[in-house]
Design a protein around this nucleic acid. Structure first.
Lengths: 343, 343
DNA sequence: CTGAAAGCGCTAACAA
DNA sequence: TTGTTAGCGCTTTCAG
């Protein structure tokens, strides 16, 4: 005997009984399936609506073997990068009436394993892994062959895995080209810790653009430090201690850019008059607060999440996708770089 | 006939068959229930582990009428306040093996209704509503009597509802008392738009503390504006245009506080030497970046989320809780207020 | 066009 | 102590 909840919802049997048809007919009537006399269908539907019938997805899922549910496992404790990704992902999936279960693993493998366990118990149709990107993460251990797993804003060494990340190299190239396009020729790059892959890729993008413009790479210094305003200020001081300070600065993220702009103002150097500054991240709380407001690179994380949703649906549908896919970043023009030709 | 997924998981029947017991026995063996010969129990368990049996929660839930799942509906598009709340909530619930389904309603009633529909279809055991707090939100429409609904960081006019919010009034009082405790006597309050309940409550807390200290309320100006650094700077200029500028400023949020501190530095006024500045939110990206670092009020949102989880579990268990509950804020001391006596 | 019944995987009541 | 079975709510096949 089942232990029903105090207030149980009407079932399809109730509908059938009231509509004076069999459950089979009622089911057909409610799902557009099969052939049915329109009148019967209408009557069943009317009754269903009247008594507030809502199909039990649990039973449906049990029957179909698909739960219309996916799990998201984050190691970044719902951090600021995870948020927009989730937003895009949820928007995409909810369109297909697929629900998203959030799990926070906080870098604890044991917690992560417990979460995977729960998700598998719930028979999710797929799992999305998202993480801080400092490094590649170990592959998620899932002992269920055929269960789609997708990594977003996160990578793993497993070549069979499908990973979706922003194109940092292209983003930095875009930023650098923007400054070059404005006529800046003495460029510098102030960025974060070298151990981040993003730092290495963005630096490469910067260097590539500098080289492509025919400039001397040695005259375009790169300063690595930490992701903070204080480092931005310090690095700027270092650059301006030299005989020929830069007229264009590509920053590794918006925090650094804010430090740079603050210090330039303190030094009485006009932005963008004398120096153009461009950031990376388009973190609005910062980008809208600098004086002048910050031109920066947007990783389009919401779109990334949306794309992750699309891909996951394909994977669930049986498509085979592997490898690393990089999604383009875009330029957000505000006032910290000066008159723009493009746009 | 059911449409099974390509790779179907072992069921309890498989375990039973291999262990040479009945399904009933296997079930008992795996759930610590009933009396069983230890040997049998062990054998069943061994087999289960060996073939990678994992109970199907869908079937379990269908049977029990509880899904071990709750839904979260946010109108704040996973905004920055939602994040820590979710973190606490998920941490609390996952401890009980309850999963959290995230839904983003973005203030669109139709989208919200669709999400509720989906959640009810999945037979969630409860729903958490979280929102921007500009005003009271209309009650969530759920036609399922007895289904627990809890509002967190969000209120509704429905008196039967249970709402959990931070105690803004107490937070502002705490901030003000901190400045008073440091010997500041000429206080001012710079805050956001009046239409926010939080603004009105924080202002009340400020006023209450001023009055309790025996100071003249008329000598403690309150400036309302918007939630931005620019407004913080403007407001500060206004205050310093007066004959007796304040020596302690309670800000309505951290962004305003940052504007205030920046402008004080630009004016050459020492912080905290001449003026103490305190914020509200403890938004680290700001609070750690001001010069000096910002002393501020923390709404303890992660704890709030955790508490929401606890309460929801009680509600699901059948407890009756209604009304508005305010959770205390706490003080985070950094360097923007000067030498501290307490702590 | 409609009804009857099997079965998805699990649990709990009852029988042995 | 263990086995048998009904039933959770739904879909789908097969008869009628």
């Amino acid at each position: 005997m089942s232990t029903r909840r105090a207030s149980s919802r009407p079932t399809i049997r109730d509908v059938a009984r009231l509509a004076e048809v069999s459950v089979g007919t009622a089911s057909k009537a409610l799902t557009d399936a099969g052939k049915l006399r329109p009148e019967t269908r209408a009557r069943v539907r009317a009754i269903a609506k009247q008594i507030g019938f809502r199909p039990n997805d649990l039973a449906h899922s049990l029957h179909r073997g698909q739960s219309q549910t996916v799990g998201v496992i984050s190691t970044d404790a719902f951090g600021r990068f995870t948020m927009p990704i989730m937003e895009g992902l949820e928007a995409c999936l909810s369109e297909q009436r697929i629900s998203v279960i959030m799990c926070n693993a906080t870098d604890d493998p044991e917690r992560e394993a417990r979460h995977v366990e729960t998700l598998l118990g719930k028979r999710v149709d797929g799992i999305v892994v998202t993480a801080r990107r400092a490094d590649q993460r170990r592959p998620l251990v899932v002992d269920t062959p055929g269960l789609p797993v997708l990594y977003v804003f996160s990578r793993t060494e497993d070549n069979a895995a499908f990973c979706l990340v922003p194109d940092d190299e292209q983003g930095a190239r875009l930023a650098t080209e923007h400054l070059l396009g404005l006529g800046r020729r003495r460029l510098a790059h102030i960025t974060g810790p070298e151990r981040f892959e993003a730092v290495r890729l963005r630096r490469a993008g910067f260097a590539a653009a500098v080289q492509a413009a025919g400039l001397d790479p040695d005259a375009a210094p790169v300063l690595t430090g930490v992701w903070s305003e204080a480092w931005g200020r310090d690095a700027l001081d270092q650059l301006f201690a030299a005989s020929t300070p830069p007229d264009g600065i590509v920053c590794g993220n918006d925090q650094i850019a804010r430090g740079v702009i603050d210090r330039l103002r303190e030094r009485g150097v006009a932005v963008p008059g004398a120096v153009s500054v461009i950031g990376f991240d388009n973190w609005e709380i910062i980008a809208e607060a600098t004086r002048p407001r910050l031109t920066t690179i947007d990783m389009n994380l919401t779109q990334l999440g949306h794309e992750a949703g699309r891909c996951l649906i394909e994977l669930i549908g049986g498509a085979a996708m592997t490898g690393l896919r990089r999604m383009p970043c875009s330029l957000v023009v505000r006032e910290s770089c000066g008159a723009t030709r493009a746009n």
